[in-house]
């Protein structure tokens, strides 16, 4: 199966630029590989939830106690992920 290509809006990149190193490392180490492999969570292995309207959420918990949600959409036929927002509930 082809991997998903993750694409961000410039607004999300601005959020990433202001994010903690711990969160960024988590995004690079676990979240993005999971999105590339199974953005719509067909396997059920990831904390990904799909709701109506085409929106998916990925819950990110960092080792330091951070809690964040990635809000994205997936276009399965194009194997593309569109990341629209990062919601941080608890730092780091």
């Amino acid at each position: 199966m082809r991997p998903y290509h993750v694409t961000e809006t410039s607004a999300v990149l601005a959020q990433y630029a202001a994010a903690s190193g711990e969160l960024l490392a988590e995004l690079g180490r676990t979240v993005y590989p999971a999105l590339a492999e199974d953005a719509v969570n067909d396997t059920g292995r990831y904390p990904i939830l799909y709701d109506r309207g085409g929106w998916y959420t990925f819950r990110i918990e960092t080792p330091g106690g951070g809690l964040h949600f990635l809000l994205y959409q997936a276009i399965e036929e194009e194997r593309r992920v569109l990341v629209f927002s990062l919601i941080t509930l608890r730092e780091p």
Binding site: T9, Y16, A17, L27, Q73, E78, L82, F84
Partner: peptide, 27 residues
């Protein structure tokens, strides 16, 4: 999201839609 999806469907390039690929890697 609706605007971006519509733009992708009509073949608009990513940069015109304010989308970036590989942005996390760069950061």
């Amino acid at each position: 999201a609706a605007r971006v999806r519509q733009g992708l469907r009509s073949g608009q390039p990513l940069e015109e839609l304010d989308l970036v690929e590989g942005g996390l890697q760069r950061i």
